[in-house]
């Protein structure tokens, strides 16, 4: 069953087309990687999927219901949608606007009018599971980059959404923080949730996705199995996802050829 259905979706920032005629079917329970170079439209597509912006042309539907400004004028529909679909922004600073970490994580449930006792219990549980309970009285804007990212993630996961949208979840994080975020994403929802991750980190893709969509200049350049797409060097080069630069092999040869940057997370390979 499709949880999202996009048909000929286009979106412009003033005169610049960010998304151009995208059609996609996103199945419930799938883990999808949106791959693309900077400016390829990944973040815009996530905002469209979270109904923070609406297409200039084409249509997006969520479980058969069209996402439109008219539909979101109904507060109950908006609450229900945002309860079920959560977005973690690339820049955690825009997402952390409360005086303490606890208040930050409680913000979503409060908007959705959960009971106070349920909010306290759920927020504490999420803070524990994310290993940030010790930060709960700290102001979010005074945390490190990795801590901010985990708080931003906790502030969305507390709602236990059916669909999790992630915009560059490991960008600008140190290797340990990256590893923690990836571990968490892999374990989250026991495979029953839909996770859509925008990234240009090819090393992540096979760990976090079972389906891959490559965006190029706002259009879908390819989609399919991650292993197959990642093996297509010509495609990756066209989409600016691999590059060539000079490097050394041991102390002997210096040469250049197209390559990616696969990496390990923490002390063990996932």
């Amino acid at each position: 069953m499709n949880i999202f259905q996009l048909r000929d979706v286009s979106f412009k920032y003033e005169t610049v087309a960010a998304i151009d005629g995208v059609s996609l079917d996103i199945e419930a329970g799938k883990r999808i990687a949106l791959l693309g170079a900077n400016g390829s439209g990944k973040s815009t597509l996530l905002r469209l999927l979270d109904a923070l912006s609406f297409p200039g042309a084409g249509s997006i539907s969520f479980q058969g219901q069209p996402l439109s400004e008219v539909r979101f004028a109904d507060h109950q529909f908006a609450f229900d949608f945002h309860r079920r679909v959560g977005l973690v922004f690339q820049n955690p600073d825009v997402q952390l606007f409360n005086p303490t970490v606890f208040d930050e994580v409680a913000f979503g449930p409060l908007q959705l009018r959960w009971s106070k006792s349920e909010i306290v219990a759920r927020v504490n549980a999420v803070l524990e599971s994310m290993e940030i309970a010790h930060l709960k009285d700290r102001p979010p804007h005074r945390l490190s980059g990795g801590e901010k990212k985990r708080v931003a993630l906790a502030s969305v996961l507390v709602l236990d959404p059916e669909v999790l949208l992630l915009d560059e979840p490991t960008a600008a994080l140190d290797p340990r923080s990256q590893s923690q975020i990836i571990d968490l994403l892999i374990g989250w929802g026991d495979g029953g949730k839909t996770v859509i991750t925008a990234t240009h980190d090819l090393g992540l893709v096979e760990d976090i996705a079972d389906h891959c969509v490559i965006l190029q200049a706002g259009k879908v350049a390819a989609e399919g199995n991650p292993a197959e797409l990642l093996a297509d060097q010509a495609l990756l080069q066209r989409a600016n996802l691999v590059h060539a630069h000079r490097h050394r092999h041991g102390s002997v040869v210096t040469h250049s050829h197209p390559h990616t940057h696969p990496h390990k997370h923490g002390s063990e390979t996932i």
Binding site: L87, D103, F107, G108, V156
Partner: peptide, 16 residues
């Protein structure tokens, strides 16, 4: 503002 809306903010202030 988008980040606030994304978590259900509709203009009203709710506190614990």
């Amino acid at each position: 503002h988008q980040a606030m809306r994304s978590r259900g903010f509709r203009g009203e202030i709710h506190l614990l």
